[in-house]
């Protein structure tokens, strides 16, 4: 089709931009459910939950990115995803993620002494566990 428009997707994290390409479609992990975005989508702002951002490239192949919490903004065929972490499936180190998952679980079980210190450490471990699980889930697609 002559007038077929593409969608530009950018994924921005505190460590820099992890993805920036023209694509056919993107599926975002909104906190109220998944959202599929195509070109000509209405302007939209949505909150994202920890999950998987799926991107359909122009050649029809799928790419998967493990993304964290943040927001996405859709405006004039441009999708801006701003999230606290983002790792393309191909770049996820599975064995490292497994180690992180195990360590986080152990830390969470050690939560016996009360007090602020333990609470913060528990929070950290919980966050680490969610990140690790998400990475492993997303990495599963590329294998």
């Amino acid at each position: 089709m002559a007038d077929e428009r593409v969608l530009h997707v950018e994924v921005v994290t505190p460590d820099g931009e992890v993805f920036s390409q023209d694509v056919a479609m993107v599926v975002l992990p909104g906190i109220e459910g998944e959202l599929g975005i195509l070109a000509r989508h209405q302007p939209l702002v949505t909150l994202l939950g920890v999950g998987e951002t799926r991107i359909r490239a122009l050649d029809g192949t799928w790419e998967y990115i493990a993304t964290g919490i943040g927001y996405a903004q859709v405006l004039f065929d441009k999708v801006l995803v701003v999230t606290d972490h983002g790792e393309p499936a191909g770049r996820i180190d599975v064995s490292r993620a497994e180690v992180a998952q195990r360590r986080a679980r152990e830390r969470m079980q050690e939560r016996h002494d009360p007090g602020a210190q333990a609470e913060v450490d528990y929070f950290r471990a919980e966050q680490a566990l969610r990140r690790a699980e998400n990475r492993l889930h997303v990495a599963g697609h590329s294998r």
Binding site: L35, P43, L44, T46
Partner: peptide, 24 residues
């Protein structure tokens, strides 16, 4: 910056999004 002329769809409502983003 760019909310001027276009009508956005917010999911959830704008103030809920803002409140959720504030810790950031």
């Amino acid at each position: 910056r760019n909310f001027g002329p276009v009508t956005y769809l917010f999911e959830p409502e704008a103030n809920v999004i803002l409140e959720s983003l504030l810790p950031a």
